[in-house]
Structure formats: C-alpha cells, structure tokens
Design a protein around this nucleic acid. Structure first.
Lengths: 221, 221
DNA sequence: ACAAAACTAAGTATAATTACTTAATTTATA
DNA sequence: TATAAATTAAGTAATTATACTTAGTTTTGT
C-alpha cells in the first residue's frame, strides 16, 4: 500500500492533534478528516472514506464500539483500529465482535502504533499482546493475528436494556436516588424503583458498586 | 527565547508520543525527557531541567498537582503547564495553588497548546478561557494572566477529616456499603455508619451524589 | 389491527440507611 | 501525665431501598 488515509476519532482535540502529528511525521500516512465522537465519525465517513478509521472507545454521543459496528455494516472497505485506555476483557471482546480490525491501548508506543496501523491498513489484524491472551481464551477456534477476519457472530446488545432503562442507568450512575430520578423524569418513585430493579437484574449486579463497574466495563454510559 | 526544552509527563505513551510529535514538528521545541507519573517526573527533573514541564493531572503513583507543588518548591526556574481532561473548578484552583503557570484542557487545539507553551516558557501565565472565569471568581485581587505569580495561601485542608474518615470516604466513593466497609476495615457496621454519618455532616452533604461531587471538587480522593 | 414489548405504578415484606445520642476505649499531643 | 481528639460501637425512630409480584396503559413492529 502506498499511502494510508486515516480518519481520527477522539473527543480530545489535543490527543487528536498529537496523534495526527505523530502519524503525518511518517510519510505515507495522511489524516484526511477528524471526528470527536462516533456519530461524527459516521457523518465524516459518508463523504470521506479512509483506509483506516482510528477510533477511541470512550466518547460522548456515540461510543467507538457502536461506531465500529456501524462502519462494518455500512462500509466493508473501511478498516477500523480501536484505541483504548482500557484492557478490560469486555471492551476487547465487544470491539472484536463489533468487527474491529485492531485493538491498541493508549499505553502503546509510537512504534507499536505504526505497526498496528500498517497491519490493519494492509488487511491484517492487530491486537496488543495483553489483549491477545484475552482473545485466545475466548475464541479457541479463531486465528486472530492473521489476515483472516474473526468477524464473530452478529453481535447482540449484551443486556438488551430498554431506552428508559438506559436513562435510569445514567441517572443512577450519577448517584441520584429514586426520588430524584422520579422527579427528573416525571414518573412515580415506584416506577423508578421498578426500572432500577429490572436494570440490576438484567446486568446481574446486586449493588451500586457492581452496577457501576459493569456499566463501565460495557461502556453503558 | 530560542529553544524551549520540555519534559512531558503523562501516563499514556501514545498521548505522550503524540504531543511530542506535535511539539517537535514546531522547530524550537525539544522534548528532552518523559515521565509516566508525577514521581517519575520529579526523578527526571533531578538530572534534566527543562524550561517547561508539561504534566497531566490524573496519573498513577503521584498526580500532576502534587508534582507541580514539589517542582515549585524545588526548582524555581522550571515552569509548569498542567494538562487536564477536567475543567472542574477545584482542579484548576488546586493547580494554581500548587504553583502551575498554565492550565490547559485536552480539548484545546494545537494552536492554543503552542500559544500556552510559549507564554509559559517566556515567564507568563496561561489559562484557557473557560478556566479564566473560575479564577476571576476566586481571586478578585489577583492578576492571573500576567507574569506575576499568583502563589496563593498555603492551602488548608478544608474539612479536617480524620484519617479514618478519609479511609471511609474512599470506600464510600467506591460505592461500597457500610457492611462491606466494616468487613474491610474489621470494624462493626455501626462504626462504619458513624464514620459515614460524621463525614457527610462535615462535608455538609445529604446524599451520595453530593458527597461524590464535593469530594471531586476538593480532590478528596 | 394485533401481539409483543415497554412503561407505568400499586402492594408487601425485609433489609439498609439516616439521623441522632450516649459512652466506652485508644491514641495523640501539649 | 492530663486532656483533648479519635475511634469504637450500641440504641432508637424514621426514612429509604430492595426484591419481588401483579396489572393497567402505551408504544412499537409487522
């Protein structure tokens, strides 16, 4: 491949600018456009198709994993490289299931980053060392670090939370109590309680701490 | 000033590499060393004195604010530019009180970043727009965006929490309930309740959400 | 238009937290 | 070594949350 065109999606301009500088330092890589969240990334891709979309997981509006899923559904010729602060098992698996071609921690070095980008751009897969173990444990059958796409089963929304439940979840995670949540949504306290109860049941957690952890793990914020 | 020497402290290599690439793209800036937390930064400064230390707030081992305080105590000729994800009032104030010469959000643009760096390197102060308002509200007397150091009062512990209370606070903020806290500290549940109660009273909050906010505001984590 | 899913909210019992007070020990510090 | 401060923990009453179930009303998909 001659020149790699990339679109960068990260909600921090400075991080974006930094990575951009880092990439364009290498002749052969051009950042053709940027986005500050998943939704914006999808907008950008409508008109600007890069070889690789480099995308952060945690972003407002739409997270990176959901965006990757969409990108894979809409554009089979755009590769995706997920950047993350987290090496949590669930993020990794979700990213792979969403169809990511690479998964890299922000703790990675410039060299590793460029290696990953090249690999992904040329149709390969790249997952950081720490991540490989996780994958191995979960897909005994699949070869990951090769050019063969893992493209695992169609991906289901892990918990099937309803819209209202997601709303409640957000408020709960802001540590609001049922009374306040009820007031904010103009529903009865009892209704808020029910939603909260169903939520906890669906996520299989039994207290706020577990709920908070699970929500973080799965990017349910 | 001819060449600006900087030391970069951020726990994410990729972010560091990015900012480095971004900076060194500009002739006139040289990253002479790096660190991945506050402690490391101080180690580095022992042998390598830059004009400016660019430092993230949230880092393991030692956070950026504590590091800045130390740097100001030890080396009067090293300027500090704090980078942060957060524009929370208290972080800003803490940073200033610690003696930071600049405070920049990671959402800033490359241009703003370079402007800030230049200003700080040449003995000035730089605080992002959003941040300036906060400062104005808190130091009516002080001129902030000038070369005069604000160096405000020595910083007092606002709430006089006891050691045990701080411990409990941390566990509460991890969303643990009194039972679990009690088990963890080998005290009775009733004792945990009392500490929690006194804590809430001292901080003048009436629920978890307010507690969490106040704790964040005052860096009580 | 019809069924399924989602949203609403009541009831009930048990558990936990809140908001205190009192008071016995243990630990700092003047 | 007093004396204050901190830690421990029990008691009590009121409030709130948890863990359900049942059930009526809306919304949504086909």
């Amino acid at each position: 491949m001659d020149i790699i065109n990339v679109v960068l999606a990260d909600d921090h301009v400075l991080v974006r600018d930094g990575i951009k500088a880092l990439l364009e330092d290498q002749s052969g890589v051009v950042v053709i456009d940027e986005a500050s969240n998943g939704k914006e990334a999808l907008e950008v891709l409508k008109t600007n198709k890069p070889h690789v979309l480099i995308i952060d997981i945690r972003m407002p509006e739409m997270n990176g994993i959901d965006a990757v899923r969409e990108v894979n559904r809409l554009y089979t010729d755009v590769r995706t490289l997920v950047l993350s602060m987290h090496d949590s098992e669930e993020y990794v698996l979700q990213a792979i299931q969403a169809g990511a071609d690479g998964y890299l921690l922000k703790g990675a070095s410039k060299e590793e980053f460029l290696k990953a980008l090249n690999k992904v751009a040329s149709g390969g897969k790249y997952f950081t060392g720490d991540v490989s173990a996780i994958i191995m444990n979960n897909f005994v059958n699949g070869n990951t670090n090769t050019a063969v796409a893992p493209k695992v089963k169609p991906v289901e929304d892990p918990f099937k939370l309803t819209k209202r439940e997601k709303q409640i979840l957000n408020l709960v995670l802001q540590l609001k109590n049922n009374k306040d949540i009820a007031d904010e949504l103009n529903i009865s306290k009892r209704t808020a309680e029910v939603h909260r109860f169903n939520l906890m049941k669906k996520l299989e957690v039994k207290n706020l701490m577990e709920l908070s952890n699970k929500a973080k793990e799965y990017g349910l914020e």
